[in-house]
Design a protein around this nucleic acid. Structure first.
Length: 191
DNA sequence: TATTGGATCGCC
DNA sequence: GCGATCCAATAG
């Protein structure tokens, strides 16, 4: 019943992918551990003219994965200590990705609690850096293929009824774009 | 080569 | 509200 999202899913307009990722499950399995969570919050970063995007000033060593083919993970370090996970969308050569901002923990909750040093279910994965820490996502997964068995997103057949949008979080420019999408009824949305 | 500030978090 | 702590992008 669970269906892994393939490259065709990611090779579409980023805003559409960002919305359709809501309600799907992010899975990370390594070292005999199976971790997953339902995606409840995303943000889109699109093209050459989006001042909030890492790609705005052109291709660099850090952001090169964003310029590559769809269906790969772009993981970067921010504030010198936190990792953030993006899923690359749209055609090769066009920089676009969806930032995964929050999950509802599903599988492997005990390991997530241990890694986060936190017992509260609500605070385990309700932020982009928190979910990376909980699932053990770091720059070793930068460029990872989302059609692999290490990291991927799957559809578990759950219907999404309500989606809300707002300005993106933590950026200075590009605030006029409502490119943050979330499930308004979820307790696991950030902030 | 030096400086600055960031798609954050957790504690004060 | 603020410090932690690395790296990329700027300025010089």
């Amino acid at each position: 019943m669970n269906k892994k999202l393939d490259r065709n899913f990611y090779n579409r307009p980023t805003l559409l992918v960002a919305k359709e990722l809501l309600g799907k499950y992010l899975v990370v399995q390594r070292d005999g551990c199976f971790l997953s969570g339902k995606i409840v919050e995303t943000e889109a970063y699109v093209g050459f003219d989006d001042p909030a995007s890492h790609a705005y000033r052109g291709k660099t060593f850090r952001n090169r994965v964003m310029f590559g083919h769809p269906g790969y993970a772009y993981v970067y370090l921010t504030y010198g200590m936190h990792h953030c996970l993006n899923l690359v969308t749209e055609r090769g050569g066009y920089p676009a990705a969806v930032l995964i901002r929050a999950l509802e923990p599903a599988d492997g909750i005990e390991l997530m609690k241990k890694r986060r040093g936190c017992q509260s279910l609500k605070d385990l994965t309700n932020g982009p850096a928190k979910l990376c820490q909980a699932l053990g996502i770091d720059r070793n997964l930068n460029g990872a293929d989302l059609s692999s068995n290490i990291i991927y997103v799957e559809d578990r057949g759950e219907a999404v009824t309500k989606i809300a949008s707002s300005s993106r979080v933590g950026i200075k420019e590009g605030k006029e774009k409502n490119w943050r999408f979330f499930l308004p009824d979820s307790k696991f949305v950030s902030r």
